[in-house]
Computed example of a mutant assay.
Amino acid sequence: MKILITGAAGFIGAALCERLLEEGVHVVGVDNLNPYYPLALKSHRLTRLEALAGKPNQSEMTGSFRFVKMDLTERDALMQLMQDERFDVVVNLAAQAGVRHSISQPHDYVDSNLVGFVNLLEACRAARPRHLLYASSSSVYGDDARQPLTEEQAGAKPLSLYAATKRANELMAYSYAHLYGLPVTGLRFFTVYGARGRPDMAPLRFARKLMAGEAIDVYNHGQMARDFTHISDIVEGIRCLIDLPPPREVDAAPSRVLNVGRGEPIALRDFISGLEDALGLKARKRWLPMQAGDVERTWADTTALEALSGFRPHVSLRDGLAELADWARAYPELLAEESTDAAIPDPVHRPISGMLAFTADVTLDARVMI
């Protein structure tokens, strides 16, 4: 099987590439390597992929990884890649992320999340992969008080431009499924955390500040809850769905949208307490009001995901935070939100208890295509 992963240097994209390479899949990874957060972290992830692709595979099949630096707004180049490679499956994880950034830099979201996505849809229409999966977000639900959130609660009142672009992606994908019979699955991810995560998100931001002895900002005076979902559960959910494209039926478009989350809201205060325990540190907290575009609570109803795939997320908050803390202590340089020029070596990948984990005693050459 040959799969295209867009956003391959991103948090979820790189983790999915690792999972597929372990299985012997041929993976082409695309990423524009934009500096929304430091490129050293993206280099760190890509180095892991290069190392994993170079290791002898234990199975009879041998996978491969090829990285292509490309922006989805490069319409002709994207179309050519799709025509040349004839991918079996496309997983679109490329996007301009971040709720708060969308308030100050709206055009970044229009270019990447709207123009880039329609370019990909057009390329898929021409190349006809058997399944297109794409990242949506729990942000599409807005501040809906009906919890847990089910897929039928389509977001009609997005609280940020980021959320609006993700809901637009769902509608755009449906139209291509309806018009051209393209099988599409949207993935509404709920707050993803873990090692090698995004440093602009609360889990690694909190870890960085705790380790530096700085106060952490706690919005809405701590009256928040999130369906925190470990990265390995997110990746396993995607992997289960890759082989399950929506069926082509006479009276229905081959399109679906699914929640991918832990299915258990965690109070922000409890998350911080768990991170304190994992790091062995005590946080100083700065209590602040709710930020624009934010919501008080997210809670995924994952009934549809489990019924379709048989998969149910299982990584506990305690185990997930222990893995995050181990990585944060090993790589404090990669927790910064501002760019640095350093390319950091990464240890050899080794799976532990079904989670994407690492050992800290073996380092690799950090050279990577940028």
Rank of each mutant, 00 (worst) to 15 (best):
A164P: 10
R167D: 08
R167E: 12
A168C: 15
Y174G: 02
H178W: 10
Y180W: 14
L182T: 06
T185N: 08
G186T: 09
F190M: 03
T191M: 00
Y193E: 11
G194H: 07
G194K: 06
A195W: 04
R196D: 00
R198E: 14
M201D: 12
A202P: 09
A202E: 12
P203A: 00
L204M: 15
F206I: 09
I216E: 04
H221W: 13
H221L: 07
H221T: 03
Q223R: 14
A225V: 00
F228W: 13
T229C: 12
S232T: 05
I234R: 07
V235S: 04
R239K: 13
R239T: 14
C240W: 06
C240M: 08
L241D: 04
I242V: 13
D243A: 15
D243C: 08
D243I: 04
D243H: 11
E249Q: 15
D251P: 05
A252L: 11
R256H: 01
V257S: 06
L258T: 04
V260W: 00
G261E: 02
G263T: 08
E264N: 06
P265M: 06
P265I: 07
G274I: 02
L275D: 04
D277C: 07
A278R: 02
L279D: 01
G280V: 02
K282W: 06
K282G: 07
A283L: 11
M290E: 11
Q291F: 10
A292Q: 15
E296Y: 13
E296S: 14
